[in-house]
């Protein structure tokens, strides 16, 4: 896969080719003073961070700390109780619905369970955004969809329905759909959860390659230590108890320099232990 000369970019130039987030522009994502709440239950207060071009940004924390919720806020699926999310110089939280919708087309999202549309085949799943937002013809769409599926190792599964493939394959198909429009920002919610160690390694490699070939900025929610150190170059650590961000920066630096015992415990205890303790507290 590594030898293919950046095939992801080859959507005939009919895709979204003008970069929304130029390299010399403002940072692609800025979260300002975000407070997240479900009703009156405040989950996290005063979350602040910036994601730079080409970052693989990790959102980490124990289970139930609000990682998925943070992602949903960033995607506009939940409105923040306070604070704002900015993409480049666009205030996403205060934006007009149509502008927000337009902005969302520059994103790709992989949900925790894949979230494939169950009434459509894999090719239709990947092809839907292509059909909606490009001028490609039907056969061209199928061609691009097959390419995206091949990139995630699902060549030959175009005609399968989501219910006919395994959970890991559904996740990869979800990834193929997420990169259908060559997005500039990718969001992954627990990409390797529930995958075997080898598939999970392959997925990490794939994420790195997407960053390098697509030039995408990537936000990953995960609590797998192996992934955190293998791919992450920036991060925030959400702590459920204090309901705040208690650390941010390159995970390797955090491991080397953080004096906070909660961060140290999380980053040093094996993935399995962290899982276990997370489960006990979740």
């Amino acid at each position: 896969m590594a030898t293919t000369p950046s095939p992801i970019k080859s959507s005939d130039g009919k895709g979204l080719s003008v970069p929304k987030f130029p390299k010399d522009g403002p940072p692609p994502i800025t979260v300002k003073n975000l407070t997240m709440a479900y009703g009156t239950f405040v989950l996290m207060k005063d979350v602040n961070f910036t994601v730079n071009h080409g970052d693989i940004f990790i959102i980490m924390g124990g289970s139930g700390s609000g990682k998925s919720t943070l992602l949903r806020h960033m995607l506009g699926l939940i409105e923040p109780a306070k604070g704002e999310v900015w993409y480049g110089d666009f205030n996403f939280t205060r934006g007009e619905p149509l502008e927000r919708e337009e902005m969302l087309r520059h994103f790709g999202v992989l949900y925790q369970g894949g979230a494939l549309w169950s009434s459509m085949t894999l090719a239709e799943n990947v092809g839907l955004p292509l059909g909606e937002f490009t001028d490609l013809s039907e056969p061209e769409i199928l061609e691009v969809a097959s390419l995206k599926l091949a990139l995630v190792g699902l060549k030959g599964f175009e005609g399968y329905y989501p219910s006919q493939i395994s959970g890991g394959m559904q996740k990869r198909a979800g990834l193929a759909r997420a990169i259908a429009l060559d997005p500039e920002i990718l969001f992954f919610d627990e990409p390797s959860a529930g995958l075997d160690p080898i598939s999970s390694r392959l997925l990490d490699d794939l994420i790195l390659e997407l960053r390098d070939n697509l030039g995408a900025t990537i936000v990953v929610v995960t609590h797998e230590l192996a992934s955190i150190f293998a791919i992450g170059n920036n991060s925030v650590f959400l702590d459920a108890e204090s309901r705040t961000v208690i650390a941010q920066g390159d995970p390797k630096d955090l491991l080397a320099h953080s004096t906070d015992h909660r961060v140290q415990t999380f980053l040093t205890r094996g993935g399995e232990d962290a899982e276990k303790s997370a489960r006990n507290h979740g």
Partner: peptide
């Protein structure tokens, strides 16, 4: 069930109403 499996979220974040 599409809501439960986040399929509706997937539509929304793709800019499809």
């Amino acid at each position: 069930s599409m809501k439960v499996t986040q399929e509706i979220d997937a539509l929304t974040t793709m800019g499809i109403s």
